[in-house]
Write a protein that binds this DNA or RNA. Structure first.
Lengths: 233, 233
DNA sequence: TAGATTGTTAATCGATTAACAATC
DNA sequence: TAGATTGTTAATCGATTAACAATC
């Protein structure tokens, strides 16, 4: 009986892993590991121990080992982690090799800024096009990305297997466009519209960016900092 | 003896609050409360209970009451919260009325995009200027914000009581500019350079933005989602 | 083999939720 | 007063850290 329980335990764990039910705290840390390992790789470093990485990243070595072990034993006792191997594994976890396609909706300042970066390519995401209502922009290219009319969005998404829609439109149109995207089979939305976008279906993943929140946090910290310094009255 | 302990307890708590040592989990939620309350205010709503707000924000009512009480009793039993009052209080906490001044360093695409928004004004932060090396931009205005040469940055900061530097420069120059800012008395940095900026001093607050991390998280979730749907083999 | 460092379990810490007495 | 809802304490839950046996 005991051995069956043991087996079941193991099974449960593996099942869990396969299902990807990893705590969101861990998931949010993965991109950071990815960045640091990428840098180390570029520096030509071959191996690293959790202790060394812990110093670099200013987190505990324990946390690093715990985090990585949610996905499998990527290290080797007595040696540490092979940087190239670990980087590859984390890249895979993060979907870099899934060949995701993205479109940017809204060719305003922010849309342009995003189009100008290598943010997408660098993470294995292909920018297929930008969409806008402004007829002056349609037909042009912005940093190599063609601009199409927003009316052609649903068709384009269906035909080109678009996975991700990047929303840099005014908040008034965000919800409608999201529905359109969902109906056209797009399953991920990266939302820069200044509002909390809710997913129209549990199938669709919505990632909201709130830059303003970060600015406010900075101000809060600035304020508490100066408060602290005030001489005790 | 017991009563002294009790008093001490109370004192400790108040001291804690005054010092602003509130858990960072709570602090990160403040801007979100601020946004929702702002919307409610605009909608002309006067009062709200934690239960109602909880439904709106999709968090527990318990958490809302717990969070708000880190800063004081903003509500009233049997009534709920006065929206205008609560909004004002949270605004104050977040430093909206501190009159912070900001400069944007780097007048590239992202710098322009930030200059185009009302992100700063809306949060009580004044944009005093932008700085760049490009002589073609110097002297111009971008969405009403004058562009200066980067060499004049330290002087400008000292003379104009600049609190926040927004970094939209290539990552190579980020660390140097941060040191310059610190020496010129700027105590907050909002860093969009694609790297982990470390504060040169515990006095200086650095807020790092990593848009790419958010994109990766989206991809991870997209990937796990499709995995889940695969028929069990 | 001895030394190093992981993978993993157990202990600790902190954050969230539930419950309810205080009070408007 | 009775009803509603907060402020706050206690219980639960989850995440982080510490410790160490497994193993390269």
């Amino acid at each position: 009986m005991e051995s069956i329980d043991k087996l079941k335990g193991t099974f449960d764990k593996k099942y869990h892993e396969a299902k990807g039910t990893v705590s969101s705290a861990v998931i949010k840390r993965l991109p950071r590991y990815h960045r640091y390992l990428g840098d180390l790789l570029r520096d030509g470093k071959l191996r690293i121990s959790s202790a060394e990485l812990s110093e670099l990243m200013e987190v505990t070595a324990s946390q690093i080992r715990q985090d990585l072990n949610c996905f499998g034993g990527f290290g080797q006792q007595g040696y540490g982690y092979n940087i190239r191997y670990l980087y590859t594994k984390i890249s895979e976890l993060l979907g870099v090799s899934e060949g995701y396609n993205a479109v940017i909706i809204g060719a305003g300042n922010l849309g342009k800024a995003l189009a100008a970066t290598h943010m997408f390519e660098r993470r294995g995401v292909t920018r297929l096009g930008m969409f806008d209502i402004n007829p002056e922009l349609v037909g042009k290219k912005i940093y190599g990305t063609p601009v199409y009319h927003i009316d052609t969005l649903p068709d384009f998404c269906k035909r080109n297997n678009v996975h991700i829609g990047v929303l840099t439109v005014p908040k008034e149109s965000a919800a409608n466009i999201t529905d359109t995207l969902y109906e056209a089979g797009v399953m991920g939305v990266w939302n820069f519209a200044n509002m909390e976008l809710r997913s129209p279906s549990p199938d669709m993943i919505v990632e909201n960016i709130h830059l303003g929140d970060s600015l406010m946090t900075l101000c809060y910290k600035l304020k508490s900092r100066s408060k602290e310094e005030k001489p005790r009255e």
